[in-house]
Structure formats: C-alpha cells, structure tokens
C-alpha cells in the first residue's frame, strides 16, 4: 500500500472514544473506510503512513493543538494536498480564519449534524457507494 489508502478512506482524529466510535459507525455504514487516531501525534503518523483521502480533525486534542496538526500535514509534501475538515465548538471558540490559515480545507461546528457531515464528506470524496 505504498500509494496509501487514499480514495474513500477517512482518518478520524478525535480524543473522545464515544464520539470516535459514533463517527466510525456513521461513516462505515455510509460506505467509507475509516482509520482513527486519538491524539495529534497518532494523527500525523497515521496520515503520513496511510495517506487517507480525508482527515476529520477535532481541534481539541490532548497532546497538541489541532491547528498544529493541520500545519504539520501542510508542511509535508506527501500530505500537502490532503483535505482536512476541522471540527470544533461554536464559531467563537476558534476563529474560522485561523483555521483556514493553518491549512484546513473545511470547518464544521459541534454539535455536528450527521447529514451535514455526510454531505461535506461526499463533496470531498464523491458519492456514497
């Protein structure tokens, strides 16, 4: 798998296990493959090794700022083009401009509406199978 999983694989970066599992079920039942990471460090390692087609990145991680994860992925030639969808609390918490400046390609605020999330993922990865 030297070319990476790409395509319809989504890397879920979320430190809360219940939310991570819920998103995993949601995406897998909707026809996507998923990988998951519970920390910033694990997210970077997994993204660089597996080259998923999309990263869904919770900005509140235990070990690093989510925006630093985005900057790191932007700085690496292999992951430079990888779409990154940031998830955070209300718009007041992290400003959207800072998010885009760090290299995120999209932005959703919690609580996530699952239909909206699937719509956005579809816009990145193409229609469900």
């Amino acid at each position: 798998m030297s070319e990476g999983r790409g395509g319809r694989t989504v890397l879920l970066v979320e430190d809360n296990e219940a939310i991570r599992n819920a998103f995993t079920i949601l995406l897998e039942e909707s026809g996507y493959r998923t990988l998951s990471a519970a920390s910033g460090r694990a997210a970077i390692d997994t993204a660089e090794r597996e080259l998923p087609g999309l990263v869904i990145l919770d900005l509140g991680l235990p070990d690093m700022n989510g925006l630093d994860v985005a900057r790191h992925l932007r700085g690496n030639a292999a992951t430079r083009e990888m779409p990154i969808l940031a998830l955070t609390g209300r718009a007041l918490e992290v400003d959207q401009e800072a998010c885009m400046a760090a290299g995120c390609t999209g932005y959703l605020t919690k609580p996530i509406d699952t239909e909206q999330l699937l719509g956005v993922i579809e816009s990145y990865l193409g229609a469900r199978e």
Binding site: N16, A22, F23, I25, L26, E29, K110, P111, T114
Partner: peptide
C-alpha cells in the same frame, strides 16, 4: 459526551 449522544441518536 452530549455530542456523542446526539451522534448515536442520529445514527
């Protein structure tokens, strides 16, 4: 945890 409950509910 509430976010998790909402997401599971929607699933």
């Amino acid at each position: 945890p509430l976010t998790a409950i909402v997401t599971y509910g929607e699933i």
